[in-house]
Design a protein around this nucleic acid. Structure first.
Length: 271
DNA sequence: ACTGGCTCCTGAGGGC
DNA sequence: TGCCCTCAGGAGCCAG
């Protein structure tokens, strides 16, 4: 399920193959995604050239002139570069043919992903305007987290996964960062010291950086721009390991539901 | 200003 | 073998 490392892995893999390329054909086979695909998308994109492929939060931004094509992979989406002839697979919803002859294929079984055309000032779009800082930027640190947490009674895990606080930290990496920082996921956000937030911010950066280096986490269906899976799942300490011994103290890890999400933690190490 | 719950969707996996 | 049920989850949205 794509979180920030998976989206960044996709961006890095695709960028050299799409930047500078003209979009020569757009085929929409299934417009019913998280948001309905604009019926005019094919018309507006055709003929434009991709200047740069960027990422903001978990959104990919294909910069095209003054505008941008914004793509979200949802939780089962992938963008792959394919070379004709190839067989269109089930759930291949949208195909973008490039001047090079390669085809960018958007596949998404659960259709939680989306494509938007942002005609001008992309960062002002309602889906981007209220996002928090990037977790790997200098704007994100313990002091920032502590300040944000001041009036928050919600569990720290929900706080950490709130995109208006910090972007890109989904269930897997929130679970891992809290484990590494030794913080109980249910602890109210405002009841955590500044020193512990320093540690948490550092662990978020560490786990995301390592996951990017490993090509992301593939639990079921994530593949990068070339169809390759990630292998960070081999490094997970807590996520998906409920009932197994804690890697640190061997106490059985506990699995619970928190804010509609599967949550795993060590009842002894995490306070 | 926050918080928690609901919603979209398909496929995997377990039980029988 | 096959069917049915449950679960998984990103994140926008809404009611309280």
């Amino acid at each position: 399920m794509p979180e920030l490392p998976e989206v960044e892995t996709t961006r890095r893999g695709l960028a050299p193959h799409v930047e500078g390329q003209r979009i020569t054909q757009v085929q929409v086979f299934e417009p019913r995604l998280r948001w309905p695909v604009d019926p005019g998308l094919a018309q507006v994109l055709t003929g434009l050239t991709v200047a740069r492929l960027e990422r903001r939060a978990k959104y990919l931004l294909f910069r095209l002139g003054a505008g941008a094509l914004m793509v979200h992979l949802g939780m089962s989406g992938s963008l792959q570069l394919k070379h004709p002839p190839f067989e269109r697979l089930r759930h291949d919803h949208i195909l973008l043919t490039l001047g090079s002859g390669a085809v960018l294929v958007f596949n998404d079984p659960r259709r939680f992903g989306s494509l938007h055309w942002l005609g001008s000032a992309p960062e002002d779009h309602r889906l981007l305007a209220h996002l928090g800082p990037e977790p790997l930027s200098s704007a994100f640190d313990g002091a920032y987290l502590a300040a944000q947490a001041k009036s928050r009674s919600a569990p720290v895990k929900a706080f950490l996964m709130d995109g208006s606080v910090v972007v890109g930290v989904g269930n897997i990496y929130a679970t891992e960062a809290l484990f590494l920082a030794g913080i109980h996921p249910r602890r109210p956000a405002r009841r955590i010291s500044a020193a512990r937030y320093d540690r948490l911010a550092a662990e978020v950066k560490t786990v995301l950086t390592q996951a990017i280096a490993a090509g992301g986490t593939t639990l079921r269906d994530f593949v990068d721009g070339s169809g390759r899976p990630g292998y960070f799942q081999q490094t997970l300490h807590a996520y998906g390991r409920a009932g197994h011994p804690c890697p640190r103290c061997a106490t059985p890890l506990r699995g619970e539901r928190l804010a509609q999400r599967a949550t795993v933690f060590c009842p002894r190490c995490q306070r």
